[in-house]
Design a protein around this nucleic acid. Structure first.
Length: 514
DNA sequence: GTAGGGTTAG
C-alpha cells in the first residue's frame, strides 16, 4: 500500500490516488470536513490504543524511509491530502508515529495554510521536541498569527525545551513581525547567554529586529559583533540604514563592504537603490544603474521597481527612464504578477511631478486588468492629484472609487489641502478623518491646522474643547508643538498677518489636555 | 524535519 502511494506520487498521479484512498477511507471512517484545503480532516494522532500488529526491525526501517520520502514530497508539492492519507495509513497500520513525522506533518499543514490541522497534530503529539516547537512557531509567524505564536514561545520555554539556532532566528523574526520589539530585546539577552549569539542566521534576524524598531545604533553593534559576514547580513545592515533614512550612510557602507570584497545580490541592489532614491542625486543613480547591469541582477522585479523609484525621484523625475523601464516590464509581462510595480510607478510619478503619465498608467492598468487594484493604488492617485493641487478632482475621484477611502487617504488629501491652502476641501477631509478615527489625537491637530488656514481661531478653540470632552489624549511626540510650529511656519510666509495670541496659545503645555 | 536580508504607499 505504502509503495503504491509513493509510486503514485512519483508518477504525479496524486489526485487519482487521493480520490481512491479518500473514497476507501471514507467507508472506514467518517471524517468531518473541517480542513480549509481539503474535504477531510487530519486524522488524530491519538496513540492510546494498542497497536494491532507491531512492526519490528528491517521492515520498520523500510517503512520509515518510505514515509519520510512520501512526506517530503507532500511538503515540497504542498499536497495536503496526500499527507493526510499517509497519516491515516500510519494509524490504520498501527505504525508507531513519532515526533519526527509529527514535525513533518506540522510543516505540511502549516505550508498549506491548515493551521487547525497543524495545531491538532501538535496538541496530540505524545512528545514534542525543539524542532516541532520551532516548526509551529515559524508556521504561525508566517501565517501572521502572532499572538498564538508568542504564547507558544512562552509555553516552550516553560516546558524546559532548550531553543536552538533555528528557534532563536524564528522567534526574533516573530518579535519583529509582531512589532514586539521589547520582547525581541529580551530574546536577544537570552541569545547572548546561549551558544548561538554568533550564528549568522540569528545575527541577521537580530539586525532586522533593530532596523524595524528604528534602533540603528544597536543594529550596528550587532553587525560589528558578527564573527563572519555574508550577503544577507550585509544587506540587512545596508537596508537598515536605508529604511531609517540614513541614505548616505547606507551608500557609504555599501561601498566600503564592496571594497572589502563582499559580493552582493539583487536584494542588496534593491536596498541601495532605495537609498539613492532618497539622496536624489541623478549622477549617483546612473552610476549604480550601470553597476547593477554589470552585476546581472537587474532583471529581478524588486530591482526594477527600485530603479523606477530612483529615476522618478532623482532630480525632477526622469520621465524617459521611468517610461522605458515600466514599458519593458509590461512587455515582459512582469508587472501583471506584481502590483508593487504599478504602485512604485504611480508613487514615483506623484513625487517626480509626472502627473499626466501617472494618471495614464493608472487608467491603462484599470482598463486592461491583470493587476488587482488595491486601496494603495487608489491612495497613490489621490496623493498624485493632491500634490498637483487638483483637490476637487481628488475628492471627486475618492467619491467614485470602488473601495472605501481609509484614514490614510483622507489624511493624504488633508495634507495636500494644507500645502495648497484649500480650506473647503480640507474641511471635508478633516471631518471625515475625525469620523473614522475619533480616538486619534493627531486628527484634531489636523483639523485645527485646517481652521488655521482660514484664520478661524474661534473654531480652533472649539476643537480643543471637543478634545477635552472626548478625553482624547495626545501621543507623546505628536504634541501640540507640531501645531505651534505649523502655525508659525504658516505665518512666517504671510507677513500680512501679525503673529496672534492664538499662535502663542498653541505652545506646548498650554494646550495639553487634563 | 525547524532559521536570515528586498522593491511601493499614506
Amino acid at each position: 500500500m505504502l509503495r503504491r502511494i509513493i509510486k503514485f506520487i512519483h508518477h504525479r498521479n496524486i489526485q487519482t490516488f487521493i480520490s481512491i484512498s479518500i473514497h476507501q477511507s471514507a467507508k472506514l471512517h467518517s471524517f468531518p470536513p473541517n480542513s480549509p484545503n481539503s474535504n477531510i480532516a487530519a486524522p488524530s494522532f491519538n496513540l492510546n490504543h494498542a497497536p494491532a500488529q507491531q512492526i519490528h526491525g528491517q521492515d520498520h526501517d523500510m517503512r520509515f524511509m518510505e514515509y519520510d520520502a512520501l512526506l517530503r514530497d507532500c511538503v515540497s508539492r504542498k499536497h495536503v491530502k496526500a499527507g493526510q492519507t499517509a497519516q491515516s495509513h500510519m494509524i490504520k497500520t498501527s505504525y508507531a508515529l513519532r515526533v519526527y513525522f509529527g514535525g513533518r506533518l506540522i510543516v505540511l499543514y502549516l505550508k498549506c495554510g491548515c493551521l487547525d490541522d497543524a495545531q491538532k497534530v501538535f496538541d496530540e503529539m505524545p512528545q514534542r521536541n525543539v524542532v516541532s516547537w520551532t516548526a509551529v512557531i515559524s508556521g504561525y509567524t508566517k501565517s501572521g498569527v502572532f499572538n498564538e505564536a508568542l504564547h507558544l514561545v512562552l509555553e516552550m520555554l516553560r516546558s524546559g525545551t532548550n531553543p536552538n539556532e533555528y528557534t532563536f532566528a524564528t522567534v526574533v523574526i516573530l518579535c519583529t513581525s509582531a512589532s514586539q520589539f521589547e520582547c525581541g530585546r529580551q530574546i536577544h539577552s537570552l541569545i547572548v547567554k546561549s551558544p548561538f549569539e554568533s550564528h549568522i542566521y540569528v545575527g541577521s534576524s537580530l539586525l532586522d529586529l533593530y532596523a524595524k524598531s528604528g534602533n540603528i545604533h544597536e543594529e550596528r553593534l550587532v553587525f560589528e559583533g558578527l564573527p563572519e559576514r555574508d550577503v544577507v547580513s550585509c544587506t540587512a545592515i545596508v537596508s537598515g540604514y536605508a529604511q531609517l533614512g540614513f541614505d548616505q550612510e547606507a551608500l557609504d557602507l555599501f561601498c566600503e563592504l564592496q571594497s572589502e570584497g563582499m559580493s552582493f545580490n539583487y536584494v542588496t541592489y534593491a536596498c541601495v537603490l532605495t537609498a539613492l532614491s532618497g539622496l536624489a542625486v541623478f549622477e549617483y543613480g546612473r552610476q549604480m544603474h550601470g553597476r547593477v547591469l554589470r552585476s546581472h541582477q537587474s532583471f529581478y522585479i524588486a530591482v526594477e521597481n527600485s530603479l523606477i523609484d530612483m529615476y522618478s525621484k532623482c532630480g525632477h523625475g526622469d520621465e524617459e527612464s521611468v517610461v522605458e523601464l515600466y514599458s519593458n516590464m509590461k512587455e515582459e509581462n512582469k508587472f501583471k504578477a506584481d502590483g508593487t510595480t504599478l504602485l512604485t510607478v504611480l508613487s514615483g510619478c506623484s513625487h517626480g511631478g509626472m502627473e499626466q503619465i501617472g494618471l495614464q498608467f493608472f487608467d491603462e492598468a484599470a482598463s486592461a486588468g491583470g493587476v488587482d487594484l488595491g486601496i494603495e493604488h487608489y491612495g497613490c492617485i489621490v496623493d498624485l492629484l493632491g500634490r498637483a493641487g487638483q483637490l476637487e478632482r481628488a475628492l471627486h475621484f475618492m467619491k467614485e472609487m470602488p473601495l472605501k477611502p481609509n484614514a490614510a487617504i483622507w489624511g493624504s488629501l488633508l495634507g495636500a489641502c494644507r500645502a495648497h491652502r484649500d480650506f473647503q476641501v480640507g474641511k471635508v477631509a478633516a471631518d471625515r478623518l475625525l469620523e473614522i478615527e475619533p480616538e486619534n489625537a493627531g486628527n484634531y491637530v489636523m483639523l485645527c491646522n485646517v481652521y488655521a488656514l482660514d484664520g478661524r481661531w474661534h473654531e480652533v478653540r472649539k476643537v480643543r474643547r471637543l478634545m477635552k470632552e472626548k478625553a482624547v489624549v495626545k501621543e507623546p511626540g505628536k504634541s501640540w508643538i507640531t501645531l505651534g510650529q505649523t502655525l508659525h511656519t504658516f505665518y512666517a510666509g504671510d507677513r500680512s498677518r501679525p503673529d496672534s495670541e492664538e499662535v502663542l496659545l498653541c505652545k506646548v503645555g498650554e494646550m495639553s489636555i487634563g
